[in-house]
Simulated assay, not measured.
Amino acid sequence: MSIFPFTQDVPELEERAAQELPVFRELAYDYENNCLKRKGGKTYLVEKDEAVRVWIYKALLTRRFVWPAYTHAYGSELEAVIGYSNNRDILDSEVKRYITETLMVNPYIQELSGFRFEHRGSEMTVAFDVTTVYGRFTHETEVYNE
């Protein structure tokens, strides 16, 4: 309980938000073959953190402001880092910023932390920890800076 009568503690707000949000669902996704998974010839839903993983994967791959099927809040602007800088610290900072802007629009995601960058030529792998209303997991994605 807060000492101020008009505010609430952050854990109380997060707990209430988790209770008010419906269970997050997405279609199951096969990342290796870049297609929806099927059982008995039909697509199926996954829930909670697995659904958030699918959403993150798709949000980072979808170019923002390009597709009229999506709102302007959905998608990534990571393509802006292509040829951006030869300075790895600046590049890492910009990639972290773009990823954070892309993912924090999702109310099920509470925090992104522990960003780790690995550079191999013009390719970069970014791993980071995702804290959701359901738990915590690590996500890894590739970014190209050609």
Rank of each mutant, 00 (worst) to 15 (best):
P107M: 02
S113W: 06
G121F: 02
R16C: 09
W67M: 09
A51I: 11
E12T: 13
I82R: 05
L27D: 01
K58S: 09
L112P: 13
V54R: 12
R88D: 01
L27Y: 13
T71N: 06
Q8P: 00
I99D: 02
L45C: 12
V46S: 08
K37P: 00
F117A: 00
Q8H: 10
R64W: 00
Y44F: 15
L103F: 10
G40Y: 06
Y98C: 02
Y29N: 05
D89R: 14
E77K: 10
V54D: 03
E146A: 08
Q19R: 14
R120A: 10
F4S: 13
D49P: 09
V66S: 04
E146N: 07
E123Y: 07
D49F: 11
P22R: 07
I99A: 02
G83S: 02
E111L: 14
T7K: 07
F117V: 08
Y57N: 15
Q8K: 14
R120V: 08
F4W: 14
T131S: 08
L91A: 05
S122L: 09
G40V: 05
F137Y: 08
P22Y: 07
D89H: 10
T62W: 04
L91P: 11
E118R: 14
V46M: 12
K58V: 02
G114T: 01
L45W: 06
S76M: 02
R97Y: 05
F115C: 09
K96W: 01
E12F: 08
A127S: 14
Q19F: 15
K48P: 00
L60V: 10
Y31R: 12
R25I: 11
K39T: 03
T71L: 05
L103A: 01
V52P: 15
A80K: 04
Y31Q: 02
V46F: 10
M1T: 10
F4P: 02
Y84N: 01
E111Q: 13
Y74N: 01
V23T: 14
S113T: 09
Y74I: 03
K58L: 15
V130T: 10
D129V: 15
T62M: 03
V133W: 05
K37S: 11
R16W: 11
N145E: 08
E15R: 11
R38F: 01
A28H: 03
E111M: 14
D92I: 00
R38C: 06
E32F: 13
L21R: 06
Y57I: 03
G75I: 03
L45D: 07
R136P: 00
Y98M: 06
V66Y: 04
V46G: 12
A17C: 12
D30P: 15
F115I: 06
A18M: 10
V143L: 08
T7N: 05
S2A: 15
G40W: 07
M104I: 12
A127C: 07
G40I: 03
F24K: 13
T125N: 07
